[in-house]
Computed example of a mutant assay.
Amino acid sequence: MTEQRDQPEPLQPLQPLQPMPTDWQRALAVVAHPDDLEYGCAAAVADWTDGGREVVYLLATRGEAGIDTLAPADCAPLREAEQRASAAVVGVSEVEFLDYRDGVVEYGLGLRRDIAAAIRRHRPELVVTLNHRDTWGGAQGGGFWNTPDHKAVGRAVLDAAGDAGNRWIFPELLTEQGLEPWNGVRWVAVAGSSTPTHAADAGPGLERSIASLLEHKAYIEVLTDQDPAEYVRTFLTGNAQQAAARFGGRPAVPFEVFPR
């Protein structure tokens, strides 16, 4: 007797990515480590700042556990300096650090409070973060396990966008720090998502995004045996071209956008 097997469901065609919102002036990008934004969305940031928009970076850690051959006390100032130089390449002059320990960031009230405080300080309309889900990978399956720091920070960002606007959540932000509630976040955009909904044109800022990631020289040199410039260009252009199929053939930076 021939065994009957269910046929797999056919893969559904991927929907086109919608253009990112443009009717905003201020953005806050919140990630776990130096280089997260450079791998994730620096080409979009370069284009945004060229258009006169303000973007501030907030990092939970200084990436001090990222280089095996360098002790954290020596690594932290090096990676901080590389991050500031990297941000400057794409027009970002303000970079803040929360000083959580690299590799052991935990989702919780303290992290939510610190990010909500930053949102109240900077009053962005757009908040950007990195993939908060368990895996990286394509929307149709597969992928690699995400790191605990990325998951904790990304999820806390999504929650803190609401916390920042509620005066009864973390009231000490007002009474102790004088930070008035800010309910003006209109979107949270997640870079590196396996289920993107929107995209920004990567073309205008692509070369500067390459230069921006190359500022993380100490990290990249221990990450790959390739020539750093070749590695960075291949990685970033490949990602941008992969997204082009869903964005009218244009190289793109994809985001999963959660409206508020």
Rank of each mutant, 00 (worst) to 15 (best):
Q4W: 11
R5E: 03
D6V: 07
P8Y: 04
P8W: 03
P8H: 07
P10K: 06
L11G: 05
P13I: 11
P13E: 12
P13A: 12
L14G: 15
M20S: 03
Q25Y: 09
V31Q: 07
A32T: 06
D35S: 12
D36K: 05
A46N: 07
A46S: 15
T49D: 08
R53T: 12
V55F: 00
Y57R: 02
Y57C: 01
L58N: 04
L58G: 07
L59Q: 09
A60V: 10
R62S: 13
G63A: 08
G63M: 08
A65E: 03
I67Q: 03
I67F: 00
L70T: 14
L70K: 10
A71W: 08
A73T: 10
D74R: 12
P77A: 02
R79I: 04
A85M: 14
V89T: 10
V92G: 00
S93M: 03
E96K: 14
E96V: 13
L98K: 09
Y100E: 14
D102I: 00
V105T: 01
G110D: 14
R112Y: 06
R112E: 08
R113I: 06
A118I: 06
L126W: 03
N131G: 05
R133K: 11
D134K: 07
D134S: 12
A139I: 12
A139N: 07
Q140P: 00
G141T: 14
G141I: 12
G142Q: 08
G143L: 06
G143E: 09
A152K: 00
A152R: 02
G154C: 08
A156G: 03
V157K: 02
D159N: 10
A160C: 09
A161H: 02
A164Q: 06
G165Q: 11
N166I: 08
R167L: 10
W168Y: 15
F170T: 04
F170H: 15
L174G: 13
L174I: 04
L174T: 12
T175R: 11
E176C: 03
Q177L: 14
L179I: 11
N183A: 15
G184T: 07
W187P: 01
V188I: 04
A189Q: 04
S193V: 02
T195F: 12
H198L: 07
H198R: 07
P204I: 12
E207G: 06
R208D: 15
E215R: 15
E221R: 15
Q226T: 07
D227W: 08
A229N: 03
E230I: 09
Y231P: 03
T237Q: 15
G238Y: 01
A243G: 15
A245G: 14
P254I: 06
F255R: 05
